[in-house]
Design a protein around this nucleic acid. Structure first.
Length: 372
RNA sequence: GCCGAGGUCGUAUAGUGGUCAAUUACAGGGGACUGUAAAUCCCCCGCCGCAAGGCUACGAAGGUUCAAAUCCUUCCCUCGGCA
């Protein structure tokens, strides 16, 4: 780190308070588009929108930041287009912080879960677009270029994600590739930041699967390169669907306490509470939004599957304690009806509710941290 | 009244001698979803039973047959045409 680089990056994270009973901390991440009070949950707006709701409705849930995606926006509508529209903030009319994932996970996901072709080599990942079958190559450099086009506040280094049960050899390969790619991403990030005069942050993703040694190796190599924050990468739950607390906690313990720790893809409300206690500051997950579209709602009294017949004539709000638009204005019976007739408004209201539930949960967590 | 077509599990359909408690879709019931190819996917859906299995069923009643949703007879009903 040279003197002149000591600007936003070095001021980007401050810890306001540390818990005396766990590794949880109350903090603040400062970006070019404002502050994220941590611990924070960031919903996924993968393709430039949190599905079914507008950025204004998202703001109403008091969500402080969102996650969007390099790969998806690169494929459609193309990152140059978004740059020409003034960047993703302006394009989607969201003036708060945006974190963009690097695209590695999405390609892994495409290759892993489908018959689509894709291959990984030292250069990067070559894969077939699920949209039109065309072949593309994403490299660490290309991923950064796209993220600069998007204009995100926090950029992720391109990583090679694997499933938790991969063999040792593949795990090692993933760690080594992620290190190489992260180094290249960091170089590109530095060069583009200088060239464009843009101030943003870059986080790296720690791989290593369910193997402590590999996690340690991955973290140490990344730390040597130097990043503004570190993320737990990989898959957070085991084959039985259990939150992998041990390895996730261990990975957090490796990361420097003076930098943000980001738990990618986590999780359920319970998983997030555990994640906070393990020391994580940032979370993102598709669960609240995807589940909302399926009528699976989080409430102060537990999970409420609003499609279920028992709510047919229930005129109470989803959650009497909730202050979201859906709960303040509409009944379970009405929302059930909307979901059952596949009316988009039903999905929107459920999404608003779940995101407000998550936001309130994070508010509660921060409040508890502040007073204890 | 005559002629034609038809009556199948909530609805709409498939099945025209055994492989049929019976296809498919919708409706209905339940569940899954963790850095989003997810507005997706899975299960149940005659009755009893955890199950094996049993029982009752393809408009009604008879009949033919080892065997009928499927063939025959009569009746009831619906739709179209003619009176």
């Amino acid at each position: 780190m040279t003197e002149k680089k000591k600007t936003t990056q070095d001021m980007s994270f401050e810890i306001l308070k540390t818990s005396s009973t766990s590794k949880a901390r109350l903090g603040r991440i400062t970006t070019a588009h404002g502050v994220i009070e941590t611990p924070a949950f960031m919903p996924d707006a993968t393709r430039g929108a949190v599905q079914t709701i507008s950025s204004l409705q998202l703001a109403d849930t008091k969500t402080s930041a969102l996650v969007s995606n390099t790969l998806h926006l690169y494929l459609k509508p193309g990152s140059e287009l978004i740059r020409s529209q003034g960047g993703l903030h302006q394009f989607m009319h969201w003036d708060k912080p945006i974190l963009t994932d690097g695209g590695g996970f999405q390609i892994y996901s495409l290759i892993h879960r489908s018959s689509l072709k894709g291959k990984i080599n030292a250069e990067g990942m070559t894969f077939q677009s699920p949209l039109d079958g065309s072949m593309h190559t994403l490299t660490p450099e290309k991923s950064q270029e796209i993220q600069f086009d998007l204009g995100s506040d926090i950029k992720m280094a391109f990583d090679d994600c694997i499933h938790a049960d991969q063999d040792k050899q593949r795990n090692l390969e993933s760690v080594e590739l992620t290190t190489q790619w992260s180094r290249r991403a960091k170089e590109k990030f530095g060069a583009m930041s200088n060239e464009l005069g843009v101030e943003s942050l870059i986080y790296a993703i720690v791989q290593g699967g369910n193997d402590r040694e590999m996690r340690k190796k991955s973290f140490e190599e990344l730390n040597e390169i130097g990043f503004d924050g570190f993320a737990y990468g990989g898959w957070p739950i085991d084959a039985e669907g259990q939150f992998m607390e041990d390895i996730i906690g261990y990975t957090a313990s490796l990361m420097p306490d003076d930098k943000p720790k980001y738990a990618m893809g986590i999780g359920t409300p319970d998983d997030i509470r555990k994640g906070v206690e393990l020391g994580y500051d940032l979370f993102d997950c598709v669960l609240p939004t995807r589940n909302a579209r399926h009528g699976h709602l989080y409430t102060s009294e537990g999970i409420l599957r609003v499609k279920n017949g028992e709510f047919k004539d229930d005129n109470r709000p989803i959650d009497p304690v909730c202050d979201c638009t859906a709960c303040v204005n509409y009944s379970r019976a009405y929302i059930r009806h909307l979901i059952n007739i596949d009316e988009p408004l039903g999905k929107s209201l459920c999404t608003i509710h779940n995101l407000r539930y998550y936001a309130r949960m994070m508010e509660d967590i921060r409040e508890q941290l502040a007073i204890t």
